[in-house]
Design a protein around this nucleic acid. Structure first.
Length: 496
RNA sequence: GUCCCCUUCGUCUAGAGGCCUAGGACUCCAGGUUUUCAUCCUGGCAACAGGGGUUCGACUCCCCUAGGGGACGCCA
């Protein structure tokens, strides 16, 4: 049997280092065994998936040196490789489950579900579907569907006993069935949920090994059950440890830059990020720390994975990047610079901003200083010219951070709208409101236009810089954070 | 709250019962090379979460406790 692994990213945002991490390991595992690695797009969340995100993810993976044998861009014998294009396959399989009595149609509204959840929560129970629709008569179901009542399909789960699953890294894992919810398999929009799609696709695409994040361990029983219901063999599953923030929580953009584009734009090399990620939770037999992806694939084995969740440590990444950069020939180094900052795409973004402000070409460097490199470090005195008090500045930075967290796209006009509306809500003049953002982003009171700068820098860089601005102003304590969160929520409610 | 997973220096890790006086790397500190800085070299600080077993012997195996993390969505 050929080893076949996959990465199945969801195109709902910036390409995440966690995705890259899992992709790298799956890739290396397949390559090591002389097998195949494929890419599948899990875009069943119709509301959040975008083609832009998909393109960015593919691009990022290529930048890291990951290649695939089958995928949405190159096709293959098991396509299509976009789940949104496989809807018929999923409904067919869901129907099979219903007719085999392994699944049922459910008409419960989300309001009722919320209510049930609330009750269970206050009673201290774990929240799960209460089985309301499980016993509905066939003709009633048919009538409701004919009448156009919105509905989902849920899987049945044994009420008692425990599920014994196997993880290639941990051995047996036992989870009581009482813990397992009657998972929705088909959403009311007709799309499958992850749980149905992943099982159906992994089977049809002949995936032999699934390396995925630890966060999925608790879903193994659902997946195993589905494999049993369909009468299929289950691929080998191995759950990789999760990348962590410095505070040990799961890596998140609020606390750490997580988008691969951030690392590329900040001047890291793709091969370095890949090398670095490869030593998160895995080590070379000879403890070498610098190695290529080819060497990684040659040496890779599951038994050298350590399970403690590794903290993503920028210091060490910096060191590693320096090692690579300094080891280059001057020619290669020149190419690296040109590719990073001075490629035509990047310049094309910059030119509209700087050309009209330029008398001599020598004026360019100071103008773009904070866009191509780090902006100057901030202190409290950086904000001395503000008309507002420190606590107001902190409130602005905190609140805009919350708004930015929810921001999907990062275009200048949208950023303007977000700021304008928050400034209005806070009843602060836009000019005064924007001041701490200017300082935070550019480190200067005079700079290129703020929103263009932000678009150029991207969300992760902006988040980091704004966070540093907050620190420079004395930081936000837990207590203050709570108060600001509350104030922000009130503002949000008032605005609606 | 319920369930699941994890636990070696601050961080990434080596270690598969005696090779461990626990090794390497990053960070930090000290010294050296260098017109400055950086690089580079040398040295140093620093860990087996705690408690019980099993064993002649436990960082390694088992149990308990503690701590950390994750999951509990018509998100993936």
């Amino acid at each position: 049997m050929t080893v076949r692994t996959r990465i199945a990213p969801s195109p709902t945002g910036d390409p995440h280092v966690g995705t890259a991490y899992i992709a790298l390991f799956n890739w290396a595992f397949a390559k090591h065994a002389g097998g195949e690695f494929l890419l599948r797009i899990e875009d069943t969340d119709a509301a959040r998936s975008t083609p832009e995100s998909e393109a960015a993810i593919l691009d990022s993976l290529r930048w890291l040196g990951v290649t695939w044998n089958e995928g949405p861009d190159i096709g293959g014998p098991h396509g299509p490789y976009r789940q949104s294009e496989r809807q018929a396959i999923y409904s067919e399989h869901a129907d099979k489950l219903i007719s085999d009595d392994h699944a049922f149609v459910c008409f419960c509204t989300s309001e009722r579900l919320d209510e049930v959840r609330r009750e269970q929560q206050s009673a201290g129970q774990q929240t799960k579907y209460d089985g309301h629709c499980i016993g509905l008569a066939k003709d009633e179901v048919a009538a409701q569907i004919a009448a156009g009542t919105p509905h989902v399909v849920r899987m049945k789960v044994p009420e008692e006993g425990e599920c014994v699953c196997s993880d290639a890294l941990r051995g047996e894992i036992r989870i009581p069935y009482a813990q397992i919810d009657m998972q929705v398999l088909i959403k009311s929009d007709g799309m499958p949920t992850y749980h149905l799609a992943v099982v159906v696709d992994d089977h049809l695409m002949q995936i032999s090994h699934v390396l995925r994040g630890e966060e999925w361990i608790n879903s193994m029983p659902k997946h195993q059950l589905l494999y049993e219901y369909f009468g299929w063999d289950m691929p080998v599953h191995a759950h990789l440890p999760l990348l962590r923030n410095p505070d040990k929580s799961k890596l998140s953009k609020r606390k750490n830059p997580t988008s691969i584009s951030y690392y590329r734009d900040s001047g890291y090399l793709g091969e370095v990020l890949a090398n670095y990620l490869a030593m998160m939770g895995w080590s070379m037999p000879d403890e070498r720390e610098q190695f290529s992806m080819t060497e990684f694939a040659e040496q890779f084995s599951l038994d050298r994975i350590s399970l403690g969740g590794p903290i993503f440590d920028v210091e060490k990444l910096n060191w590693l990047n320096g090692q690579y950069l300094r080891a280059m020939t001057p020619n290669a180094f020149m190419d690296a610079i040109a590719e990073w900052a001075l490629n035509r795409d990047r310049l094309a973004q910059l030119v509209p901003l700087i050309q009209e402000r330029t008398e001599r070409l020598a004026d360019i460097a100071p103008q773009v200083e904070y866009l191509l490199g780090d902006r100057i470090p901030l202190t409290e005195s950086s904000f001395a010219d503000s008309k507002l008090e420190t606590d107001q500045l902190l409130a602005i930075l905190h609140h805009i951070g919350r708004r930015f967290d929810e921001q999907r796209s990062w275009q200048r006009d949208e950023l303007y709208q977000v700021c304008k509306s928050l400034a209005d809500d806070m009843e602060i003049k836009l000019r005064d409101f924007l001041y701490p953002l200017f300082i935070g982003v550019s480190g200067r009171t005079v700079s290129l236009p703020l929103f263009d700068s932000m678009e150029f820098l991207g969300p992760d860089v902006c988040r980091v810089r704004l966070r540093e601005a907050i620190e420079a102003l004395g930081g936000i304590s837990k207590k203050l954070g709570k108060r600001l969160d509350k104030a922000f929520d009130q503002l949000d409610r008032a605005a609606q």
